[in-house]
Design a protein around this nucleic acid. Structure first.
Length: 416
RNA sequence: CGGGGCGUAGUGUAACGGUAGCAUUCAUGCUUUGGGAGCAUGCGGUCCGAGUUCAAAUCUCGGCGCCCCGACCA
């Protein structure tokens, strides 16, 4: 994409109504726009990052055997009353509204109820199970207090997968596999080393649930880490769990972290109250055993910003970066020659399937460099009179700052 | 929801109750071109509503909005 096609502009100064580093940088660089407290629009650059995150998640969920669907945001009161979760006393962060007829509807904050109802129309026999269903969809939560930029909003994109199994054993097997899939997601998104499988309170159906917690000072949670097993225990259960649940060793350090994902066993609660059952080989009807598995896409994006950003701006891992290469032309007195070279390289890279942001704007070099650092594309390639004279390209790594002079073929090789 | 802070051009900031100023952005022109250039000219603002006052950005009340701490986060 040519940068001149973007309508967004970078800003030198951070907005005063944001304290969170992720929001400051993402707004300054033109990835997001704040509509209201806790409500952010995603601008063209932001959408590209979100799409990359979604792609990783889809691939891992599909590999798990998941099938994607898309449920409605508008929620039918009736199905939620059956599960006991319609009442504001039970769930205090519902957004509710009314149809013209006066009928109350909700805006979904999760989707166990409607999905269970849908499945109950199709699942009859043990032969129909297990099934794994997911979506990437907008969730609404009427948080009393939005905070931390895009880490905790009132409207946000979330991947939610639901598992439907015949037995506890079958559920447990999938639950374990989902841990691996989640680990893959966070590794591919670049934050694997900083992300810990964390034991947290389980609710009614299992002793623990599991969270994926990424170390950052921007986090709201406190976790107790076992460095031997690379797992952690959430502060909320540290009274009951004082040693590593895996090796029984000591939990050696305490850190702030943000919950980028969670997985939860639901037992047969929803299946029972919503009539989702199957007939077993023995001819008996049994309720389906469920689990739910969430990842907040915006929160993941914000966490990546928090983890990698430096004093100059955002630093994206290649896997989620809006572009692979930021091509910058420095157009001086001999502008036509430089422009021609840069145009040609842009074409070549694009034809090779490499995503390029081409800064074709007529600006001074300093401004282009500053923008490039702020936007955070992994590899910066500069073409100027200087580089043309040398017959090379100046290639800079955003993360390390390493600059090297490469030929075109060397650059292509590096990018493969 | 409890407590605290704050609302001034698009953005960031000044202004004792007395002419709303500076920087940046934007527009135009000239110069400039390897780390957010220079000069000149121009456009653009007191969150909303009441009240006090000769006079309100400034004081009072109400509303709306934003931020922070705490509670909450199924």
């Amino acid at each position: 994409m040519k940068q001149s096609a973007l309508f967004t502009k970078t800003r030198k100064e951070a907005p005063t109504d944001e304290v969170a580093e992720n929001a400051k940088l993402l707004i300054r660089a033109g990835y997001i726009h704040k509509e209201m407290a806790g409500v952010y629009s995603f601008l063209p650059l932001g959408v590209r990052v979100m799409n990359n995150i979604a792609k990783i998640i889809r691939e891992e969920m599909n590999a798990l055997g998941g099938v994607e669907l898309h449920l409605t945001a508008l929620q039918d009161r009736e199905v939620w009353e059956k599960s006991g979760r319609w009442s504001d006393e039970v769930v205090d962060n519902w957004f509710k509204t009314k149809l013209k007829s006066g009928t109350e509807v909700g805006l979904g904050f999760t989707q166990e109820e409607p999905l269970t109802r849908i499945l109950s129309e199709y699942i009859n026999s043990y032969k129909d199970l297990p099934k794994y269903v997911y979506q990437i969809q907008t969730k609404f939560r009427n948080e009393a207090r939005a905070k931390s930029g895009i880490l905790r909003g009132r409207e946000f994109l979330m991947k939610d997968l639901y598992s439907f199994s015949r037995t506890d054993k079958e559920h447990e097997d999938f639950y374990e596999r989902s841990k691996t899939a989640y680990t893959n997601v966070f590794t591919r998104a670049g934050i694997g080393e900083k992300t810990y499988l964390t034991y947290a309170s389980g609710g009614t159906f299992s002793k623990y649930s599991h969270e994926f917690q990424t170390l950052t000072s921007a986090g709201e949670d406190i976790i107790h880490i076992c460095d031997v097993c690379h797992v952690a225990v959430n502060e909320e259960i540290s009274k009951d769990v004082s040693s590593c649940p895996v090796c029984s060793g000591a939990l050696s350090r305490t850190e702030k972290a943000v919950e980028v994902g969670n997985i939860f066993s639901l037992g047969t609660k929803y299946a029972s109250v919503l009539g989702l059952s199957y007939t077993g080989e023995d001819g008996e009807k049994k309720p389906v055993v469920m689990g739910s598995y969430g990842i907040g896409l915006g929160r993941l994006m914000g966490t990546i910003v928090e983890v990698f950003a430096d004093e100059k701006g955002i630093v994206w891992p290649e896997s989620v970066a809006p572009f692979r290469v930021h091509l910058i032309s420095i157009v001086g007195a001999n502008g036509e020659v430089v422009k021609k070279e840069a145009d040609a390289l842009y074409e070549t890279l694009t034809q090779k399937g490499i995503e390029v942001l081409y800064d074709d704007r007529d600006l001074r070099p300093g401004e282009k460099f500053a923008d490039s650092d702020l936007i955070g594309v992994p590899t910066r390639v500069v073409i100027s009179e200087k580089t043309i004279a040398q017959g090379k390209l100046e290639v800079k790594d955003r993360k390390t700052g390493t600059v090297s002079m490469l030929s075109q073929s060397e650059l292509f090789q590096d990018l493969q």
